[in-house]
């Protein structure tokens, strides 16, 4: 991912106009060809990699959707680079700043999303692990019944067994 940022940054620098960009409003359609080509290239690369990963069953469809959406956004930017120019004027920022900012916000959102997914999954793994330990115990008890082990409530010294907890139930 860092590589991607690096490449994009370099390309963006190469494609950024030398001076302040405010006057470009006058000639919005005389954009350098790289402003079309670079986003389009990335759109195609991301789409190809995503489809290939799905084909090899290494990426689930729900995550493939995210990357295809990214590819689509790049495609739109590639076809209509005027969007970025319009943003330049709106936010009074350089082309490079907008590219970096866009990438950063995208990465922040996707990392947050993955943190949430990981948190949920570690909770699920924990629950499964606990349940598994419990079931292994039950299975062992059934296979090799030892007195006092499969029913801890009836260990010697606690003769009243499960009924003993009745007075305490609120």
């Amino acid at each position: 991912m860092n590589l991607l940022i690096g490449i994009t940054t370099i390309l963006a620098q190469a494609t950024a106009p030398a001076g302040p960009t405010a006057p470009t409003e006058a000639q919005p359609f005389s954009l350098p060809w790289t402003k079309y080509l670079v986003p389009l290239t990335f759109a195609v690369i991301i789409a190809v990699i995503t489809v290939e990963l799905v084909r090899r069953r290494k990426l689930r469809e729900e995550y493939a959707m995210i990357w295809l959406a990214v590819s689509a956004v790049l495609l739109i930017i590639g076809i209509f680079p005027q969007i970025v120019i319009w943003l330049q004027d709106l936010l009074r920022m350089h082309y490079l700043t907008i590219v970096v900012l866009g990438l950063f916000s995208f990465l922040a959102v996707i990392m947050l999303h993955f943190s949430i997914v990981i948190s949920r999954q570690s909770d699920q793994i924990r629950r499964l692990t606990q349940e598994l330990a419990m079931m292994k115990r039950q299975l062992e008890d059934r296979q090799t019944p030892k007195p006092g082990l499969n029913e801890p409530a009836k260990q010697p010294g606690q003769a009243d067994g499960p009924t003993g907890d009745n007075p305490s139930r609120e």
């Binding site: 924990r126 692990t129 598994l132 330990a133 419990m134 115990r137």
Partner: peptide
């Protein structure tokens, strides 16, 4: 003792 064996190390909390 009754033993529950966790197949993974969950940490004290788990």
């Amino acid at each position: 003792a009754v033993v529950l064996r966790l197949p993974l190390n969950l940490g004290v909390g788990g």
